[in-house]
């Protein structure tokens, strides 16, 4: 991958993916109460994308996981877990960095020029475990343990936490559909408050939802060390300057832990490395031509 154009390429892919997976234009027409109901909704998208978004063409994997877990028959969600495992085995948290609409929104908010907040390392470390708690407790355990008299459970994460549903589904649908407005109540206010905190936090902290709360990121993190797409360090070229660690907005040190569970494969560290020691690999094979990238850097220095 060309160092110079890596970030731009990622932004283009993020935007294109967001548009492609939310391309049901009819859903965004005011007065229309419809969301997409076609056959593509049988399938999940790899990133967080509320299926009640007026434009959504696919199903949200976390929503789908809860839908199966919440059903009266208490089924093991083979279909959704199998899908997430497949994506995890190929891409790991590459999905977070390249194919998640909510991740893109947080990144754009972080681009607002304000002083940025540095969370103390110890606090940050504790908070990062919250996403695993979200996955285990809110997505899996509570729906299994708490059932109503008819045997159905609530989608706890979607209902009480998920700011993606409020942003992509709740707000547009309430704005576009006046029939839904009488249903507004304390839950909507609560969820809007969570979304507001997430949005404000995203201006000062890089991807706070991804770092601390996202259960999907937590699931993909389990596959980070075995996924096909990886980050590789050429130890013979690395001069331990720490430039990559300073550049990493997810607070990873790629030279020491290139396959950290927190790395979202954004590739910013590749650009900062003065010796081209970092490289994306796919199935052990390097992506991009090292010589070409080195030449690009030399040309830039020459200019």
């Amino acid at each position: 991958m060309d160092k110079k154009h890596g970030s731009k390429l990622r932004k283009i892919i993020q935007i294109c993916w967001g548009v492609l997976t939310n391309a049901y234009v009819k859903g965004f027409i005011a007065g229309s109460s419809t969301i997409y109901t076609g056959p593509l909704k049988h399938f999940c998208v790899p990133g967080m994308n509320c299926y009640s978004c007026p434009g959504a063409l696919g199903a949200c994997p976390i929503g789908a996981l809860q839908a199966v877990l919440n059903s009266r028959h208490r089924k093991f969600p083979f279909y959704v877990i199998g899908f997430l495992m497949t994506i995890g085995l190929f891409l790991g948290r590459f999905v977070c960095g390249w194919l998640c609409v909510f991740g893109l929104i947080q990144e754009l908010l972080y681009m607002i020029p304000t002083p940025k907040l540095k969370i103390p390392e110890r606090v940050d470390k504790v908070l990062r475990n919250m996403k695993y708690v979200m996955l285990l407790v809110m997505v899996i355990a509570l729906p299994l343990l708490y059932r109503n008299e008819y045997g159905a459970a609530k989608p706890f994460f979607c209902e009480f936490v998920c700011p993606v549903g409020t942003l992509e589904g709740g707000i547009p649908l309430v704005l576009l559909n006046d029939q839904l407005r009488p249903a507004l109540g304390s839950l909507f206010i609560f969820k809007t408050a969570i979304l507001t905190v997430c949005i404000l936090a995203s201006i000062f902290i890089y991807r706070p939802f991804c770092k601390y709360l996202c259960p999907l990121g937590a699931f993909y993190a389990l596959f980070q060390k075995v996924s096909l797409v990886k980050l590789d360090v050429d130890k013979s070229a690395c001069v331990n300057c720490g430039a990559c660690a300073r550049k990493c907005a997810m607070n990873v040190d790629p030279s020491k832990t290139p396959n950290s569970t927190e790395c979202i494969r954004c590739g910013e560290c590749l650009k900062s490395c003065p010796t081209n020691a970092l490289r994306f690999t796919c199935a052990g094979k390097k992506i991009g031509n090292k010589t070409n990238i080195g030449e690009t850097k030399n040309e830039e220095e020459g200019n």
Binding site: H42, Y51, A56, C60, A64, K154, P155, C158, T166, G169
Partner: peptide, 16 residues
């Protein structure tokens, strides 16, 4: 199951 959930507006998901 996924389809039937995804083609209806999920009132819980959107905060209603």
């Amino acid at each position: 199951t996924v389809f039937s959930k995804a083609v209806n507006i999920c009132m819980e998901c959107i905060g209603l």
